Simulated scan of single mutants.
Amino acid sequence: MKPEILFEDAEALVVDKPAGLPLDRPRAGGESLEDHIETLKLGFQRAPVPVHRLDRDTSGCLLLARNPKALKRFAAAFEERLVEKRYLGIVAGELAEAEGTITLALTKVSTAKDGWRMIPARKGKPAVTHWRRLDTRGGLPLVEFRPETGRTHQIRVHAASGLGMPLLGDPVYGSGNGAARTMLHAAGLTVPRGEKPPIIAASPLPADFAVLGFSDG
Protein backbone atom coordinates (compact mmCIF):
# COMPACT_ATOMS: atom_id res chain seq x y z
CA MET A 1 0.00 0.00 0.00
CA LYS A 2 2.76 2.43 -0.92
CA PRO A 3 1.46 6.03 -1.12
CA GLU A 4 2.18 7.70 -4.45
CA ILE A 5 3.48 11.29 -4.42
CA LEU A 6 1.11 13.82 -6.02
CA PHE A 7 2.99 17.04 -5.11
CA GLU A 8 6.49 17.74 -3.81
CA ASP A 9 8.55 20.80 -2.98
CA ALA A 10 10.93 21.90 -0.22
CA GLU A 11 8.23 22.33 2.43
CA ALA A 12 5.36 20.04 1.45
CA LEU A 13 4.39 16.62 0.14
CA VAL A 14 0.95 15.52 -0.92
CA VAL A 15 0.60 11.76 -1.09
CA ASP A 16 -2.17 9.62 -2.53
CA LYS A 17 -3.14 7.61 0.55
CA PRO A 18 -4.52 4.18 -0.31
CA ALA A 19 -7.82 3.10 1.23
CA GLY A 20 -7.22 0.82 4.20
CA LEU A 21 -3.95 2.47 5.25
CA PRO A 22 -4.32 4.14 8.66
CA LEU A 23 -2.18 7.12 9.64
CA ASP A 24 -1.37 5.67 13.08
CA ARG A 25 -0.21 2.18 13.95
CA PRO A 26 -3.30 0.04 14.77
CA ARG A 27 -3.40 -1.43 18.28
CA ALA A 28 -3.76 -4.88 16.75
CA GLY A 29 -0.71 -4.26 14.59
CA GLY A 30 -0.50 -4.06 10.81
CA GLU A 31 0.68 -1.60 8.22
CA SER A 32 0.26 2.17 8.67
CA LEU A 33 1.56 5.40 7.15
CA GLU A 34 4.36 5.26 9.73
CA ASP A 35 5.87 2.34 7.77
CA HIS A 36 6.38 4.66 4.79
CA ILE A 37 7.65 7.80 6.54
CA GLU A 38 11.32 6.87 6.16
CA THR A 39 10.85 6.45 2.38
CA LEU A 40 8.93 9.72 2.22
CA LYS A 41 11.90 11.67 3.61
CA LEU A 42 13.18 11.67 0.01
CA GLY A 43 16.68 12.68 1.07
CA PHE A 44 15.59 15.16 3.76
CA GLN A 45 16.78 14.62 7.33
CA ARG A 46 13.41 15.39 8.88
CA ALA A 47 10.49 13.02 8.56
CA PRO A 48 7.38 14.62 6.99
CA VAL A 49 4.38 15.03 9.31
CA PRO A 50 0.68 14.79 8.34
CA VAL A 51 -1.01 18.20 8.61
CA HIS A 52 -4.58 16.85 8.70
CA ARG A 53 -6.26 13.47 9.00
CA LEU A 54 -7.98 11.04 6.69
CA ASP A 55 -9.94 8.06 7.99
CA ARG A 56 -8.40 4.66 7.43
CA ASP A 57 -10.96 3.86 4.69
CA THR A 58 -10.66 7.24 2.94
CA SER A 59 -8.32 7.33 -0.04
CA GLY A 60 -6.68 10.32 -1.71
CA CYS A 61 -4.86 13.58 -1.03
CA LEU A 62 -2.99 13.81 2.27
CA LEU A 63 -0.76 16.82 2.99
CA LEU A 64 2.50 16.34 4.89
CA ALA A 65 4.77 19.16 6.09
CA ARG A 66 8.54 18.75 5.74
CA ASN A 67 9.54 21.13 8.55
CA PRO A 68 8.00 22.54 11.76
CA LYS A 69 7.53 26.06 10.35
CA ALA A 70 5.59 24.72 7.37
CA LEU A 71 3.52 22.46 9.64
CA LYS A 72 2.46 25.47 11.72
CA ARG A 73 1.51 27.55 8.66
CA PHE A 74 -0.39 24.74 6.94
CA ALA A 75 -2.26 23.84 10.14
CA ALA A 76 -3.27 27.51 10.50
CA ALA A 77 -4.56 27.52 6.90
CA PHE A 78 -6.80 24.54 7.71
CA GLU A 79 -7.95 26.15 10.95
CA GLU A 80 -8.79 29.41 9.17
CA ARG A 81 -10.77 27.55 6.46
CA LEU A 82 -8.45 28.74 3.69
CA VAL A 83 -7.82 25.24 2.32
CA GLU A 84 -10.04 24.03 -0.54
CA LYS A 85 -10.91 20.36 -0.11
CA ARG A 86 -12.77 18.31 -2.71
CA TYR A 87 -14.07 14.85 -1.88
CA LEU A 88 -15.96 12.35 -4.01
CA GLY A 89 -18.27 9.85 -2.37
CA ILE A 90 -20.77 7.24 -3.48
CA VAL A 91 -23.97 7.35 -1.47
CA ALA A 92 -26.12 4.32 -0.83
CA GLY A 93 -29.30 5.42 -2.63
CA GLU A 94 -31.05 7.99 -4.83
CA LEU A 95 -31.15 11.64 -3.78
CA ALA A 96 -34.20 13.90 -4.12
CA GLU A 97 -32.12 16.99 -4.93
CA ALA A 98 -29.10 17.68 -7.15
CA GLU A 99 -27.11 19.95 -4.86
CA GLY A 100 -27.20 21.88 -1.61
CA THR A 101 -25.46 22.85 1.61
CA ILE A 102 -25.59 20.85 4.83
CA THR A 103 -25.22 22.82 8.05
CA LEU A 104 -25.28 20.40 10.99
CA ALA A 105 -23.21 20.95 14.14
CA LEU A 106 -21.46 17.78 15.35
CA THR A 107 -20.42 16.37 18.70
CA LYS A 108 -18.70 13.17 19.81
CA VAL A 109 -20.52 10.53 21.85
CA SER A 110 -19.22 7.28 23.28
CA THR A 111 -20.83 4.15 24.71
CA ALA A 112 -19.31 0.95 26.04
CA LYS A 113 -21.42 -1.06 23.59
CA ASP A 114 -20.81 0.81 20.33
CA GLY A 115 -17.62 2.78 21.01
CA TRP A 116 -17.47 6.40 19.81
CA ARG A 117 -19.14 8.18 16.92
CA MET A 118 -20.09 11.70 15.84
CA ILE A 119 -23.71 12.86 15.95
CA PRO A 120 -25.58 16.03 14.97
CA ALA A 121 -26.16 18.22 18.02
CA ARG A 122 -27.29 21.83 18.38
CA LYS A 123 -24.53 22.53 20.91
CA GLY A 124 -21.88 20.73 18.87
CA LYS A 125 -19.10 22.30 16.81
CA PRO A 126 -20.29 24.05 13.63
CA ALA A 127 -19.90 21.98 10.47
CA VAL A 128 -20.74 23.01 6.89
CA THR A 129 -20.55 20.89 3.73
CA HIS A 130 -21.50 21.92 0.17
CA TRP A 131 -22.47 19.07 -2.13
CA ARG A 132 -23.64 18.30 -5.67
CA ARG A 133 -24.55 15.11 -7.49
CA LEU A 134 -22.21 14.44 -10.42
CA ASP A 135 -23.43 11.12 -11.81
CA THR A 136 -25.61 8.11 -10.98
CA ARG A 137 -24.84 4.49 -11.85
CA GLY A 138 -27.05 1.58 -10.86
CA GLY A 139 -29.09 3.76 -8.52
CA LEU A 140 -25.94 4.94 -6.71
CA PRO A 141 -25.10 8.67 -6.96
CA LEU A 142 -21.53 9.97 -7.13
CA VAL A 143 -21.47 13.14 -5.03
CA GLU A 144 -18.89 15.90 -4.82
CA PHE A 145 -18.46 17.20 -1.26
CA ARG A 146 -16.70 20.48 -0.48
CA PRO A 147 -16.44 20.81 3.31
CA GLU A 148 -15.89 24.30 4.73
CA THR A 149 -15.02 22.90 8.15
CA GLY A 150 -12.93 19.85 9.02
CA ARG A 151 -14.77 18.01 11.78
CA THR A 152 -14.09 14.34 12.45
CA HIS A 153 -16.29 12.13 10.20
CA GLN A 154 -17.99 15.31 8.92
CA ILE A 155 -18.83 14.10 5.41
CA ARG A 156 -19.92 10.68 6.65
CA VAL A 157 -22.36 12.14 9.21
CA HIS A 158 -23.55 14.89 6.85
CA ALA A 159 -24.32 12.27 4.19
CA ALA A 160 -26.25 10.06 6.60
CA SER A 161 -28.07 12.78 8.54
CA GLY A 162 -28.06 15.70 6.08
CA LEU A 163 -28.67 13.90 2.77
CA GLY A 164 -30.60 11.15 4.52
CA MET A 165 -28.42 8.59 2.76
CA PRO A 166 -25.11 7.26 4.16
CA LEU A 167 -21.98 6.66 2.12
CA LEU A 168 -21.91 3.25 0.51
CA GLY A 169 -20.07 0.72 2.66
CA ASP A 170 -20.03 2.89 5.80
CA PRO A 171 -20.21 0.45 8.76
CA VAL A 172 -20.73 3.16 11.40
CA TYR A 173 -23.24 5.61 9.89
CA GLY A 174 -24.78 3.17 7.42
CA SER A 175 -25.30 -0.58 7.03
CA GLY A 176 -21.77 -1.30 5.78
CA ASN A 177 -23.24 -3.09 2.78
CA GLY A 178 -22.49 -2.61 -0.90
CA ALA A 179 -18.72 -2.04 -0.75
CA ALA A 180 -15.66 -3.34 1.05
CA ARG A 181 -14.97 0.09 2.54
CA THR A 182 -16.60 3.46 3.11
CA MET A 183 -16.64 4.92 -0.40
CA LEU A 184 -15.04 8.31 0.17
CA HIS A 185 -12.09 9.73 -1.78
CA ALA A 186 -10.12 12.94 -1.15
CA ALA A 187 -9.91 13.96 -4.80
CA GLY A 188 -8.40 17.43 -4.57
CA LEU A 189 -6.55 19.80 -2.26
CA THR A 190 -5.51 23.44 -2.68
CA VAL A 191 -3.50 25.11 0.07
CA PRO A 192 -2.74 28.86 -0.25
CA ARG A 193 0.75 29.99 0.78
CA GLY A 194 0.67 33.78 0.63
CA GLU A 195 3.11 35.04 -1.99
CA LYS A 196 4.27 31.53 -2.86
CA PRO A 197 2.34 29.49 -5.43
CA PRO A 198 -0.39 27.42 -3.75
CA ILE A 199 -0.05 23.70 -3.19
CA ILE A 200 -2.40 22.07 -5.71
CA ALA A 201 -2.89 18.31 -5.83
CA ALA A 202 -5.43 15.98 -7.43
CA SER A 203 -5.91 12.25 -6.97
CA PRO A 204 -7.57 10.09 -9.65
CA LEU A 205 -10.57 7.98 -8.71
CA PRO A 206 -9.45 4.61 -7.32
CA ALA A 207 -10.21 1.25 -8.87
CA ASP A 208 -13.12 0.40 -6.55
CA PHE A 209 -14.99 3.49 -7.81
CA ALA A 210 -14.32 2.41 -11.40
CA VAL A 211 -15.74 -1.07 -10.68
CA LEU A 212 -19.05 0.63 -9.86
CA GLY A 213 -18.99 2.50 -13.18
CA PHE A 214 -17.54 5.86 -12.19
CA SER A 215 -14.58 7.55 -13.87
CA ASP A 216 -12.72 10.86 -13.73
CA GLY A 217 -14.07 11.73 -17.14
Rank of each mutant, 00 (worst) to 15 (best):
E4T: 09
I5Y: 10
L6A: 00
F7Y: 15
E11M: 02
L13T: 06
V15C: 08
D16V: 09
G20C: 11
L21E: 10
L23N: 09
L23G: 06
E31P: 05
S32I: 02
D35Y: 00
I37E: 02
E38V: 09
T39Q: 10
L40C: 05
K41Y: 05
G43W: 04
V51A: 08
R56Y: 02
L63I: 11
L64A: 06
R66H: 10
P68C: 04
K72A: 14
R73I: 10
F74R: 07
A75K: 02
A77S: 15
E80S: 15
L82F: 07
E84T: 11
L88A: 10
A92P: 03
A92N: 12
T101G: 00
L106P: 00
V109H: 00
S110K: 12
S110W: 03
M118I: 05
I119V: 15
A121H: 13
H130C: 06
T136L: 08
F145K: 08
E148S: 12
R151I: 02
R151M: 10
S161Y: 07
S161E: 12
G164T: 07
V172Y: 00
G174W: 09
S175Y: 10
S175D: 13
G176V: 11
G178D: 07
T182E: 14
L184F: 12
A187K: 11
A187H: 14
L189N: 04
T190Q: 01
T190Y: 00
R193K: 07
P204R: 08
P206S: 00
F214Q: 01
F214H: 03
